[in-house]
């Protein structure tokens, strides 16, 4: 609020002055984290729709290759471990932030980013390999829905990494200020949320896709 509250008061209504007192000012961060959680829930609905599309179309191969022909489970296992490791290293970053160790926070955030990049590179390699084999998104309804679902998740990871790098610059410049700590907590929720979505992807798409 830029204007001092008493300027807005009617001078004859002095008894009403206390209602301009902002009672909640001592925890202003709650609003952001709750709002960000609501955004994540709406993102969850986006993924629910994409999962539903994959659930409906996932066996429509159009005489093309099926999941059992295409999916390379060891690669998916490595990808899953990379994302899980990035979750725990982000947890370490949050712990170091609570101890007010800026440098250690930055190091763990950097490690998280590297795991995220590893995940993305493997996923892009997988996509390139599929497209090279003629199993691109235009081949069948199964592959269209597969690329949409997994690609949307990968896009989220990409934006998570962009945000992570931005946050590291903000932390490096301003230190562990209250706004920066709030940003770290928001990205923490985003990052762990992406791992939760990935649980659904590797179970529903990859593992169930190779079942006969």
């Amino acid at each position: 609020m830029s204007m001092p509250p008493e300027l807005t008061l009617n001078p004859t209504a002095g008894a009403d002055a206390p209602r301009y007192y902002l009672r909640d000012e001592h925890h202003p961060e709650n609003g952001t984290l709750l709002g960000f959680w609501l955004y994540l829930m709406s993102d969850c609905l986006v993924f629910a729709c994409l999962f539903a599309v994959y659930g409906v179309l996932g066996r429509s191969y159009a005489a093309g290759p099926s999941g059992a022909d295409l999916f390379d489970l060891p690669l998916v296992a490595v990808n899953t471990s990379l994302l899980l490791l990035s979750s725990i290293t982000y947890g370490f970053a949050v712990l170091e932030m609570q101890r007010k160790h800026l440098r250690a926070t930055l190091v763990w955030l950097g490690v998280t980013g590297l795991f995220g990049l590893g995940f993305l590179s493997l996923e892009l390699y997988e996509f390139a390999h599929l497209i090279h084999e003629g199993a691109g998104p235009q081949r069948s309804a199964f592959l269209s829905s597969f690329f949409t679902l997994v690609g949307t998740h990968g896009l989220h990871v990409t934006f998570g990494i962009v945000w992570l790098v931005t946050l590291m610059f903000q932390l490096g410049r301003h230190g562990l200020t209250a706004p920066n700590r709030r940003r770290v907590m928001c990205l923490s929720m985003f990052w762990h949320f992406l791992d939760v979505v990935w649980i659904g992807v590797f179970t529903f798409v990859y593992l169930m896709g190779v079942l006969p």
Binding site: H26, H27, E29, N30, L33, Q98, A178, R181, R182, M185
Partner: peptide, 10 residues
């Protein structure tokens, strides 16, 4: 009250 020295956002 939320003690901001220790944790963030409740």
């Amino acid at each position: 009250h939320d003690d901001h020295d220790h944790h963030d956002g409740g």
